[in-house]
Simulated scan of single mutants.
Amino acid sequence: MKNCLMFCLLVVSFLSVNCSNSDNNQLNNVITPEMLEAKKAEVMTLINNASCNGTCNYIAFGSKPCGGPKEYLLFSSAVNLAQLEDLVAEYNEMEHQFNIQTNAISDCAVVLPPNTIACVDGSCMIIN
């Protein structure tokens, strides 16, 4: 009987610890506007630190609540592409989670990538 009681107490203790940990994990996964701004600043710093050398490209950035990117960022081929892709993927996932947390809505308009981009005076620009 004593062993059974100890076992029950152990199970209850284990379950209560697991519940507490999952609550803490949920709190740790909350995305704030400040976190999004900090990550965006990191992306923009990487892009802005590399002037174009004649070749430019673009990357889908952000996550609309309806799906798809919010915008496209232009960047020079001098940017470390792997690092940029990693940072943008982190930002996009963070914004996706933020949209879920806040029940965000949007116009659901499809944002198209730029047709023509070029390096003009050391900066990547959209050419119409």
Rank of each mutant, 00 (worst) to 15 (best):
Met1Val: 06
Met1Arg: 01
Leu5His: 04
Val11Gly: 07
Ser13Ala: 15
Ser13Leu: 14
Ser16Leu: 14
Ser16His: 11
Val17Cys: 12
Val17Tyr: 14
Val17Ser: 12
Asn18Leu: 10
Asn21Thr: 10
Asn21Gln: 11
Ser22Ile: 12
Asp23Ala: 13
Asn25Thr: 05
Gln26Glu: 13
Gln26Ser: 10
Gln26His: 07
Leu27Val: 03
Asn28Trp: 10
Asn28Met: 11
Asn29Ser: 15
Thr32Ser: 14
Met35Asn: 05
Leu36Gly: 05
Leu36Gln: 07
Lys39Val: 08
Lys39Gly: 01
Ala41Tyr: 01
Val43Ile: 15
Met44Trp: 00
Thr45Met: 07
Leu46Thr: 01
Ile47Lys: 06
Ile47Asp: 09
Asn48Thr: 04
Asn48Trp: 00
Asn49His: 09
Asn49Cys: 04
Ala50Asp: 03
Gly54Cys: 11
Gly54Ile: 12
Thr55Asp: 15
Asn57Thr: 11
Asn57Ala: 11
Tyr58Asp: 12
Phe61Val: 06
Gly62Val: 06
Lys64Met: 06
Pro65Asp: 07
Cys66Asp: 10
Gly67Lys: 09
Gly67Asp: 07
Gly68Phe: 06
Lys70Gln: 14
Lys70Met: 13
Glu71Ser: 15
Glu71Met: 14
Tyr72Glu: 09
Leu73Gly: 05
Leu73Pro: 02
Phe75Asn: 01
Phe75Ser: 02
Ser76Gln: 01
Ser77Thr: 11
Val79Asn: 06
Val79Arg: 05
Leu81Val: 10
Gln83Ile: 00
Leu84Cys: 04
Glu85Ser: 14
Glu85Thr: 13
Leu87Tyr: 11
Leu87Gly: 02
Val88Ser: 01
Ala89Glu: 08
Glu90Val: 04
Tyr91Val: 00
Met94Trp: 01
Met94Ile: 02
His96Gln: 12
Gln97Tyr: 02
Gln97Pro: 00
Phe98Arg: 02
Phe98Glu: 06
Ile100Gly: 01
Gln101Leu: 10
Gln101Cys: 10
Thr102Phe: 03
Ala104Glu: 00
Ile105Asn: 04
Ser106Arg: 04
Ser106Gly: 15
Ser106Leu: 02
Cys108Ala: 12
Ala109Phe: 05
Ala109His: 05
Val110Ile: 14
Leu112Val: 03
Pro114Ala: 04
Asn115His: 09
Ile117Asn: 06
Val120Gln: 11
Gly122Tyr: 05
Gly122Gln: 08
Cys124Pro: 08
Met125Val: 15
Ile127Tyr: 05
